[in-house]
Design a protein around this nucleic acid. Structure first.
Lengths: 184, 184
DNA sequence: TCGTGTGTTAGTACCTAGTGCTATTAGAAG
DNA sequence: CTTCTAATAGCACTAGGTACTAACACACGA
């Protein structure tokens, strides 16, 4: 049996593994109705690592990722913090931040970076966002590095006003005024 | 050599695997200066699965999580959509949305729900947030269900104005005015 | 002192999901 | 008919285990 569908199979294999990375060679062989050895050769020629490596990659990715996206107190990497005055953070836009079609970052990630920075710059037990007035001034693309700077404009007993500006290089991509409340 | 440190070692093992789940029995044996077999017996009696299962668990967890948190087009569950007029979504506040200490939801999740709803209600190829004016009117706690309603107030050729209100029960917890831009 | 029990180590056979290599075969094209 | 490619098959080997058996050290108690 000569399969001139080799090319087709290899394309489908690549696509399949992208959507379902947790399939063994044996399961893949069944799906494509070829031998396990053929799948191995395909993987080899396509540079697709073995199942256990694929699982590890997913695990590793997310072991860091979920932490940094959801479980840390600040979205992005906090690189400077002068409580009640100034804070700076960096966020690198990865595939998880963008619209799949356009590769443009979703607004709420920029908001999240700025909001968490505005909250963390204030020195109080509990700080919550009250109001925010934000402008998205330029599109942010996959791979760009957002540098966000929060400056405390007004700091009273129960509330503070924080101005946040986010840049990519010299371009301002986001500006926001946050009014945050301090609870005892 | 009688080790009365068995109990201590097992406690430390449990803790270590929680913080560093990607260690083989051999590496663990070295750390605790015992034989590999001892580590195996410890894992067995503590019910700790083997390395490959631990990796799988991490991968699986996050394979679902990242999708639902980051890769979906709309944050929350879209329950009604009348393009260019109205959209409603529901978001249940889970542990991943709250500050660990206070169990209060982070503002950017409320923003994300509202922002993605405002973007999805507009019928165009590419829709991006331009400006947003938002107010967080009440704290949202772990376990509460946010019902967000987006109404298109003004819809022009190149831009639209969307009002979003989010409620928990009858309480308004978030209000926002989004100006979104349509790109061809 | 002699057992007995606990903790630890050692070793074997087996498993999965592979790698890497060497044939061998089917079938189409020259 | 030969030659090439795609596919298949088999073997030795690997990591990181499971499951089990055997042996030994040492403390404690009668």
């Amino acid at each position: 049996m000569v399969a001139r569908n080799k090319q087709v199979r290899q394309q489908e294999l690549t696509a399949l593994i992208e959507t379902e990375p947790f399939l063994t060679d044996e399961e893949l062989a069944e799906r494509f109705a070829v031998s396990v050895q053929t799948i191995r050769l395909d993987r080899l020629s396509l540079g697709i690592p073995e199942l256990r490596e694929r699982i590890k990659a997913v695990a590793n990715n997310n072991y860091g990722k979920v932490r940094s996206l959801e479980l840390t107190e600040v979205i992005g990497e906090l690189i400077e913090l002068d409580l009640n005055h100034l804070a700076i953070s960096i966020l690198e836009i990865g595939p998880e931040h963008v619209f799949t079609r356009t590769k443009i970052a979703r607004g709420h990630h920029l908001f999240a970076q700025a909001n968490s920075l505005a909250v963390s710059v204030i020195d109080a037990e509990v700080v919550l966002t009250g109001t925010a007035d934000v402008r998205f001034t330029r599109q942010v693309k996959l791979g760009e590095r957002l540098i966000s700077k929060a400056v405390v404009a007004d700091n009273r007993e129960d509330r503070a006003c924080v101005d946040v500006a986010t840049k990519v290089g010299d371009d301002i991509v986001f500006e926001g005024q946050f009014v945050v409340f301090k609870n005892k």
